[in-house]
Design a protein around this nucleic acid. Structure first.
Lengths: 129, 129
DNA sequence: GCGCTACTTAGACAAACATCTAATCAGGAG
DNA sequence: CTCCTGATTAGATGTTTGTCTAAGTAGCGC
């Protein structure tokens, strides 16, 4: 068992549920929806975290050990660890210790929710323009 | 004419072109790709800017005057203006002055590119998980 | 136990950011 | 031209963020 778990988010808010809100078009986002969604985008709004996400997603088996990741950056292990923590607290990734190593994998639900917000908007407006 | 213009970005980088990079899965994002993409997500990684984007997208005609937007927030006009500038410099919106008022509309290309990055990843990994 | 490796936490610090007030620019009406 | 309204720019300020070094926790092998 690895990524077959329940989508338990280790930060407070559960953001992995069914899309909560209209996809940016149709109906203006409420303040509380925006406050809930913005941190998800903030989590990937950093070059290092974008690459971490990509490295994990592309790694064989869909999961990667921290030691697979640190080599790709000119950053110290604590910094990588910090970025992984930010991603995990946003619910974008989950992790598990397996012996000496800690493995990370992507929680597709949260990514899907983010995509569902901006994807339809771009499509709808592209048609309109 | 309003949103039929060329996709001219008033900041440096042109981010509206054809998708530059694989969609997060398949091949790890390069450092330069990540550096180029992260600011797009940073631009929408704020509750106010998310709502601004949504308010503009939902407004009739696909465009909104600044005066249509300020009322939705408990913020001063300069602050709204600042957030609109951030969105515009990221290439997410474009603007035009028409008489007394300044109108903003969404540039769907940039939004589409962002969606293309994270959408396929969530779909692919959801299938894998 | 002891030491080694893998990773995380704690604390410090400079850079970036969101917000405000005050001042400025652009157009329209008298 | 003068005033008023709509919007942006400039500058100041408190907060957040990315990074580091130093210290701590967790598992493995001797």
């Amino acid at each position: 068992m690895s990524k077959q778990e329940l989508p338990i988010i280790d930060a407070g808010v559960d953001v992995s549920g069914p899309a909560c809100c209209a996809p940016l078009v149709c109906e203006p986002l409420s303040d509380s929806e925006a406050v809930e969604l913005a941190p998800l985008f903030k989590a990937i709004a950093d070059p290092v975290r974008l690459r971490l996400l990509s490295l994990i997603a592309c790694h064989e088996g869909g999961e990667a050990c921290v030691c697979d990741l640190t080599g790709a950056f000119d950053l110290t292990p604590p910094t990588i660890s910090h970025h992984l923590k930010v991603l995990r607290q946003a619910g974008l990734i989950d992790s598990e210790r397996r012996g000496t190593w800690v493995y990370y994998w992507i929680n597709p639900g949260v990514l899907a929710r983010m995509s569902a917000l901006i994807g339809p908007a771009s499509a709808a407006l592209a048609g309109t323009a």
